[in-house]
Nucleic acid binder design. Structure first.
Lengths: 218, 218
DNA sequence: GTCTATATTGGGATAGAC
DNA sequence: GTCTATCCCAATATAGAC
């Protein structure tokens, strides 16, 4: 689909090419309202292009959504995989916290500011729309991280590992989706990721059967 | 709004009254597809009633959604508050795990099987729709639990308490939303809540500043 | 209280001009 | 490659018959 790196001049306020403008507008609206509540008309309007152009370039609303998701996911997944590669290269057995960080930090370093919130939206869409995209974009990296967690926590059953990863992803998605609707006043994304890293790491490394063991601290 | 407990005969397959049938159908479809992707037409069709009846009884799609949410939330919030009351009555200082359980267990004991998934859906909707409903149904109980956590973990700053509660809610919502899209094979809800309780408790009680302290277990 | 019919709006998609 | 105009359908909501 994506042509081999179009010229993409980046002068500050230059007019980007039409597909990019459509993608930008679509990303913003999909993040804001979700898939079903966003119309292609509204996207075209915000992008300053004609409705017909959107269908010409992307074919359908669903395909446009897929393109937006892919553009957001790709760099984050790449960073995650690179971070995990680096970890495995420097140590045969990285700590749980290091693996968690490799998974979460790319979110706060993402170039597209709206990317994390789009991820959160994606998980909220009906499975008919989200499932294939999640599998395609997220699946491979998910398996790699699951293996890494398993090696770091050999005393946990594979099922338990997957559940805990599932919980961590849930906390992540919810945190990205809402800058704190019920929670604290909005803080920097970096701060939130730091706190989440500590929370998720603690959840991962807690003993499986006797969760009352470390009840009281200090 | 709700009339004073209508007769509601409950013979196994008896025809429930029209508003109830509409609510049932709406709950099922909202859970399945989300708010925006669900039409009042589809709801009326599935309920076996006419389109006009839905608008007569509930006024608008948004009001119908609100009614569905309230019907699902009310019993769970009641159970949560009762569980917290019981805890505070029997001990001046319940443990973190007990508070987490008081918050989570009502989800697996909910009468309406679809209620938890509706909660998850609600959090995924655009804030213009979800925010008022979340505040109204969820807010008061949220404050009570936040206070309880704060008393159980006096060494944590209030901001940190709210973040950790936020993470726990995220893990909960994500778990309820998906019976494991990426995660393990679908297990009983009770089992999932048990595992989540252990995970969230560990996240809550981890020391704030030195998260590497308890890195390796066993 | 429930249904029929309809008003009105907005959506996705396409054909064809430029 | 982009825009205009339009088709067709589905949506919310309402007015009025029964």
């Amino acid at each position: 689909m994506t042509p081999p790196a179009p010229p993409q001049r980046r002068s500050a306020e230059s007019v980007r090419d039409t597909p990019t403008r459509i993608l930008d507008a679509a990303e913003l609206l999909f993040v804001d309202r979700g898939y079903a509540a966003t119309s292609v008309r509204a996207i075209a309007e915000r992008a300053g292009v004609n409705l017909g152009a959107a269908h010409y370039h992307f074919g359908s609303k669903q395909a446009l959504f897929g393109a937006v998701v892919e553009r957001c996911f790709a760099p984050i997944q790449e960073q995650r995989n690179r971070a995990l590669d680096a970890l495995l290269a420097q140590s045969s057995q990285p700590s749980v916290r290091e693996i968690v960080e490799a998974f979460l930090v790319p979110l706060s370093a993402s170039p597209a500011a709206e990317a994390p919130r789009l991820i959160a939206r994606l998980f909220g869409e009906p499975t008919s729309i989200s499932q294939p995209l999640i599998e395609a974009q997220f699946g491979p990296s998910f398996e790699r991280f699951t293996e890494a967690f398993q090696r770091a926590l050999p005393e946990l059953e594979p099922t338990e590992i997957r559940w805990r990863f599932h919980f961590a992803i849930g906390a992540m998605v919810h945190t990205l989706a809402t800058a704190g609707p019920i929670s604290a006043p909005s803080v920097s994304r970096h701060d939130a990721i730091d706190r989440l890293t500590a929370f998720a790491t603690a959840g991962f490394i807690t003993p499986p059967d006797t969760p009352r063991a470390q009840e009281k601290i200090t």
